[in-house]
Simulated scan of single mutants.
Amino acid sequence: MSDLVALTGEPLALDLLNTRPAAGDLLATAHDLRAWLELQAERFPEARDLAAAELGAADLAAVHAVRDRTARALDHARHGRRPQADDLDALNQAQRAAPAVAELAWDGAAVTTTRRRTGPPGARLAAWLAEAAAELLADPAVTRIRQCEADDCVLLFLPAHPRRRWCSAARCGNRVRVARHYQRHKPA
């Protein structure tokens, strides 16, 4: 990834959108994509498997397409407007390209189920991200998603507290507070 560090910890679809900050693209190469997936692996075990897969330029393009469609659809949905049908269709198509199956197994004491996707790694990755986008877009909380209030930040977050204003208190909140302090105390 570039010098910027990806913001993680939001719903997966927002983490994906936040890979495109105001300047640059944190998913510029397949290597960047694998690094981002490794960051996601702690919360999403599927990310670990996908990070280990051989991902190339076509897979990266599929992820970019899901990210772009998600961004447009979310911009509409979070403002209470109807997303464009072609954006929703593209996200649905990405999911259909690698269907999820509830795979049954016996663990020695009980039947377990694990959700797995079929298809090549790039299609599985795009489907997984499109499914995360679908879940976010259909969630009533979508209208609570905010953009960071720092002047130079475009990152999105779902606030757990209604007074949250920044994507990250450490990232943007601190910069804003330092700038305000400087303005109050700068020499005349």
Rank of each mutant, 00 (worst) to 15 (best):
Q93G: 14
A98S: 12
A105E: 15
D89E: 13
T114S: 11
D89V: 05
G119V: 09
A100P: 08
A105T: 15
A123Q: 13
Q93I: 01
L104M: 13
L104F: 01
A100F: 03
G119W: 08
Q93T: 15
P121E: 05
A100C: 03
V111C: 03
A98H: 00
R117P: 11
T114C: 01
V111P: 01
A123F: 02
G108Q: 03
V101P: 00
P120A: 15
A94S: 14
W106Y: 12
D107N: 15
L104S: 12
W106A: 00
L91N: 05
A94H: 08
A98I: 01
N92M: 07
T114N: 08
P99L: 09
L91S: 07
Q95R: 15
A90Q: 05
G108F: 03
A100Y: 00
D107K: 10
P99F: 00
D107T: 13
R115A: 11
Q95C: 14
A94W: 03
A98T: 03
L91C: 09
R116C: 05
G122W: 13
G122V: 10
T112F: 01
G122C: 12
D107C: 11
R117W: 07
L91I: 08
P121D: 07
Q95D: 08
A98N: 02
G108D: 03
R117N: 09
A102E: 13
R117G: 06
T113D: 07
V101H: 12
A98G: 05
A94I: 04
D107S: 11
G108R: 04
A110E: 15
R116K: 13
A98V: 01
A110P: 03
A102V: 10
A90G: 07
E103Q: 12
V111K: 00
A105C: 04
A90N: 11
D89P: 00
D107P: 13
Q93C: 06
V101E: 11
T114E: 14
R117F: 04
T112S: 06
A102Q: 12
W106C: 06
G108H: 04
A105Y: 12
A110Y: 00
R115Y: 00
V101Y: 09
P121C: 08
V111W: 14
D89H: 13
A97M: 03
A109T: 14
A90Y: 06
D107V: 09
G108T: 08
A110R: 15
A109R: 15
E103D: 12
L91F: 09
A94V: 06
G108P: 10
A94L: 07
A123P: 01
A110I: 01
A100H: 00
R96H: 04
T114K: 06
R124A: 05
A90V: 05
P121K: 02
A109C: 02
E103W: 11
A102H: 10
W106F: 14
N92G: 15
T112D: 04
A109V: 11
V101L: 14
V101T: 09
R116V: 14
W106T: 07
A109N: 13
G122H: 13
A110N: 07
Q95Y: 01
D89G: 02
A97W: 01
A110T: 06
V111D: 01
Q95V: 09
V111M: 14
G122Y: 10
L91R: 03
